[in-house]
C-alpha cells in the first residue's frame, strides 16, 4: 500500500462516492484514511462542505476514533500489541526493540516514510502472543531477534 498523493480530484472522487448525508461522515473518513493513510486537513474541510456540516463537528469525529490519524502515517503501519496476553509474554520488549531498530519512538514515523510505529490494545489473537502486526500481516510468537529480518522484508 503506497501513500497516495493528495489531490483535490482524489478528495472529490472519494466524497462523490457517498451520499451527501450526515450519516455518510464516518464512511467517507474511512475511505480517506484508506486512500491517504491519514486524514489531511483539506480533506476534512471538503467533507464538511459536502455534508453541510461545521468543521468543528467533522474534527470531533476524526479525533475521536483511533482508526483515524491526523498525522501522515508511513507506508507500513507497525502495530505492537499491548493486550494482556502479549504484555505478559513480553510485548513491551518487542516495542523497545522496534524503537531501537527503526530509530523512532512509539507514535512516530521513520524519516524515509516507510514505517509508523504504534501500540494497540488487543488484536484478538491472544493464543499467538506476543504479536506484532505490520500492514495487516500478523507476526506470531515474535521474538526480538526475528525483528531485523522481518523489517528487511518490508524495506525492499
Amino acid at each position: 500500500m503506497n501513500t497516495q498523493k493528495i489531490t483535490k480530484n482524489k478528495i472529490k472522487g472519494i466524497i462523490g462516492r457517498h451520499e451527501a448525508e450526515k450519516t455518510s461522515l464516518i464512511a467517507i473518513l474511512q475511505d480517506m484514511q484508506n486512500e491517504f493513510r491519514y486524514l489531511p486537513k483539506e480533506a476534512l474541510v471538503a467533507v464538511g462542505k459536502h455534508l453541510d456540516m461545521p468543521l468543528a463537528r467533522v474534527y470531533e469525529v476524526a479525533t475521536f476514533y483511533n482508526a483515524f490519524s491526523l498525522k501522515p502515517r508511513g507506508r507500513y503501519l507497525v502495530e505492537v500489541c499491548a493486550g494482556t496476553a502479549c504484555h505478559v509474554k513480553g510485548g513491551f520488549n518487542l516495542l523497545a526493540k522496534l524503537e531501537r531498530e527503526l530509530k523512532i519512538e512509539c507514535g512516530q514515523t521513520t524519516k524515509d516514510g516507510t514505517f509508523t510505529l504504534e501500540q494497540v490494545r488487543c488484536l484478538g489473537c491472544c493464543s499467538l502472543a506476543p504479536v506484532v502486526r505490520i500492514d495487516n500481516d500478523i507476526h506470531a510468537y515474535l521474538t526480538q531477534d526475528k525483528i531485523p529480518r522481518i523489517l528487511k522484508k518490508y524495506r525492499k
Binding site: 476534512l44 461545521p54 468543521l55 468543528a56 463537528r57 474534527y59 470531533e60 479525533t63 475521536f64
Partner: peptide, 26 residues
C-alpha cells in the same frame, strides 16, 4: 449558529477548542 468550537480527542485527553487548535474562520 456558527459551530466554531467542538470537542477533540476523547477520554483523558478530551478538550474543547477550535478545529486543529487554529484560528477559526467561522
Amino acid at each position: 449558529g456558527v459551530s466554531a468550537i467542538g470537542f477533540s480527542s476523547r477520554g483523558a485527553t478530551k478538550i474543547v477548542g477550535t478545529p486543529f487548535d487554529e484560528e477559526s474562520d467561522v
